[in-house]
Measured scan of single mutants.
Amino acid sequence: MTEYKLVVVGAGGVGKSALTIQLIQNHFVDEYDPTIEDSYRKQVVIDGETCLLDILDTAGQEEYSAMRDQYMRTGEGFLCVFAINNTKSFEDIHHYREQIKRVKDSEDVPMVLVGNKCDLPSRTVDTKQAQDLARSYGIPFIETSAKTRQGVDDAFYTLVREIRKHKEKMSKDGKKKKKKSKTKCVIM
């Protein structure tokens, strides 16, 4: 069974824990209790493949930012979460993405942009803004509501699919490099 290491990042209060708990335990946590770091595991079937999701729910508070490099190193894919009623959390996505790329030393890291709290009427981040940002990053965008469960499975499952595509691409690139290195030079 394939294991996928997913990391949920975003500013404090955007609903990272609520999304994760909704996926794992099928219930909505409405009281806000700032996370330092929590880890969850769940076995699911995605596109006919049974897999184990190892999900790291991270601290959004700035005082825990020193811990970010460590979990970013171990993560295979990242859910970059903002709240649709919090423009600052949307603007912060850029910083999370840049930090992930720096730590992973790669421009090509599996990510999904997630606009959470889409059940709320007080939207300050337009869907088109988020779609445009995701398009500019070359990553999928999904709106979710941890409260109603809308888009929750889709967000995590899409990230797994992005990781699969990335692994497939990397193995193809690896095979191309191996083929090239088999060419021999004969000096007579």
Rank of each mutant, 00 (worst) to 15 (best):
K176S: 07
K128I: 11
T144A: 02
K172G: 14
G174R: 03
F156R: 02
K176Y: 07
K167Y: 04
E162C: 09
R135T: 09
Y157Q: 15
M170N: 08
K167Q: 11
K169H: 06
G151V: 05
D173T: 08
Y157A: 14
K128H: 12
R164A: 09
I187R: 15
D126W: 06
R164C: 13
T158R: 07
T158L: 06
R135K: 05
D173I: 00
T158F: 03
D154C: 11
K128C: 12
R135P: 05
S145I: 02
I139T: 05
S136Y: 04
R149N: 10
D153M: 14
K167G: 08
Y157H: 13
K178I: 11
V152C: 11
A134T: 02
H166V: 10
R164F: 09
V160F: 08
D153R: 13
K182G: 12
F141D: 00
K128Y: 10
R135M: 07
A146Y: 12
K128P: 10
G138R: 01
T127F: 13
A134D: 06
R164I: 09
I139L: 02
S145L: 05
T144D: 01
F156Y: 04
V152R: 04
M188R: 13
D154S: 11
K178M: 15
G151Q: 07
A146I: 12
A155K: 00
T144H: 00
D153H: 12
Q129L: 07
K128M: 10
T148A: 02
D132W: 03
D132I: 05
F156T: 03
D126G: 10
T158N: 10
T183F: 00
M188N: 14
Y137M: 15
M188C: 12
I187L: 09
A155H: 00
A130G: 10
I139V: 11
Q129S: 09
V186F: 02
T183A: 14
V160N: 05
E168R: 05
I187S: 15
I139C: 05
H166R: 11
K172L: 12
K167M: 03
K165F: 02
R161G: 09
K172E: 15
K175E: 06
S181F: 02
G138C: 00
K167L: 04
I187V: 15
H166W: 11
A155C: 05
H166Q: 05
V160R: 05
Y137A: 08
G151M: 09
Y157W: 14
K176F: 08
L133W: 11
V160G: 05
D153S: 13
F141G: 03
V160T: 06
R149V: 12
I139G: 01
A155R: 00
I187K: 15
D154P: 06
K177R: 09
R135L: 07
R164T: 00
C185V: 02
F156H: 00
H166C: 07
K169E: 14
Y157S: 14
H166E: 06
A130D: 03
K178A: 12
D173A: 03
V152A: 08
G151N: 08
K184G: 14
K180G: 08
A130V: 13
D126T: 09
Q131S: 11
V152T: 08
S136F: 09
Y157L: 12
K175I: 03
D126E: 11
S136Q: 09
K177G: 14
A130E: 07
E162R: 04
A134R: 03
V186I: 00
D154K: 11
L159F: 03
K169L: 09
E162A: 08
E162G: 04
G138V: 03
Y157I: 14
A155V: 10
Y157P: 06
D153E: 14
R161W: 02
A146F: 13
M170C: 13
S145Y: 06
F156M: 14
L159A: 08
E162F: 01
K128Q: 13
D126N: 14
L159T: 01
R164Y: 01
Y157D: 15
I187Y: 14
K178L: 06
H166G: 10
K169F: 02
G138S: 02
Q131Y: 12
K175A: 13
T158S: 05
S136W: 04
Q131P: 03
E168S: 04
T158M: 03
V186S: 15
M188Y: 06
K177S: 07
R149A: 13
V160Y: 09
K172M: 07
K128G: 13
K165Q: 03
E168I: 06
D173W: 00
K175C: 05
R164L: 12
D132A: 09
A146G: 09
K147E: 15
G174A: 11
F156N: 01
I142L: 10
A134V: 03
R135Y: 01
M170S: 05
T158I: 00
Y157E: 14
A130Q: 04
Y157N: 13
K177V: 12
D126P: 05
E162T: 03
L133D: 05
Y157T: 14
I163C: 03
D154T: 11
K167E: 11
L159S: 01
K169R: 13
T127E: 13
R135V: 08
G151R: 02
K182I: 02
E162N: 03
S181V: 02
S181A: 11
V186G: 14
T144I: 06
K167V: 04
V160I: 14
V125D: 14
K167R: 11
E162W: 02
S136I: 09
V152G: 07
A146S: 11
Q129R: 11
D153P: 09
R135A: 15
M188V: 08
K177L: 13
Y157K: 08
K128W: 08
H166M: 14
E162V: 04
Q131E: 11
I142A: 01
Y137Q: 10
R161A: 06
T158G: 06
V125K: 03
V186L: 08
F156P: 00
Q129P: 11
K182V: 00
F156E: 01
D132Y: 05
D132Q: 08
D126A: 10
K167I: 04
D132E: 15
K165P: 01
I187G: 15
D154N: 11
I187D: 15
T127S: 13
Y137V: 11
R164N: 12
R164S: 12
T127D: 10
Y157V: 14
A146C: 10
G151L: 04
D132F: 04
E162K: 05
M188G: 15
